[in-house]
Simulated assay, not measured.
Amino acid sequence: MSKIVGVTYPIPKRFMDRFFKKGKDVFVKPATVWKELKPGMKFVFYQSHEDTGFVGEARIKRVVLSENPMQFFETFGDRVFLTKDELKEYMKSQERWGRRRESKKKKLWMAIELEDVKKYDKPIKPKRLVPVGGQYLRE
């Protein structure tokens, strides 16, 4: 199998400028597609909802996991791309999905700290749809 060189996750268009114009460099979501990630790998921004496509990239500085995603604000402060209220809403929306049969085990969340954030001149259409959970990028 080909070597993993990075990852991409869908991010709604309304949040994208926070990375490119507002200096946000910490991406937060439930922990999916992260076990193979290492510092120095590529993070590609996939813009979802409208004008879809790959719109930029960054280098992964580190990945931090937590059962309580609000702790990411203690670690990263206002560098997190969501506000505290937006993250609380996101957490509530995750609880509504598929929690019927799950054990009492807490779900892990991840924060991916980024560096060298760059925006592309125009969106690049992927060959296949990027799933909600994200996907690894291979050579």
Rank of each mutant, 00 (worst) to 15 (best):
V55C: 14
A58Q: 13
R59N: 14
R59P: 06
I60K: 11
K61Q: 14
K61D: 14
V63T: 14
L65Q: 05
E67V: 04
E67I: 02
P69L: 03
M70Y: 09
M70W: 07
M70C: 04
M70G: 06
Q71H: 09
Q71Y: 06
F72V: 01
F73C: 00
F73R: 00
T75G: 01
F76Y: 12
D78V: 09
R79P: 00
R79F: 01
R79W: 01
V80G: 08
F81D: 08
K84M: 08
D85M: 13
D85I: 08
E86R: 05
L87A: 06
L87K: 10
K88G: 09
E89W: 10
E89M: 05
Y90L: 02
Y90M: 04
K92C: 06
K92M: 07
S93N: 13
Q94Y: 10
E95D: 00
R96T: 02
W97M: 09
W97A: 12
G98I: 04
R99F: 10
R100V: 11
R100A: 13
R101V: 11
R101M: 13
E102F: 13
S103C: 08
S103F: 06
K104Q: 07
K104V: 04
K106R: 10
K106T: 01
K106G: 05
L108Q: 12
W109F: 15
M110D: 04
A111K: 00
A111S: 03
E113P: 07
E113M: 05
E113D: 04
E115K: 13
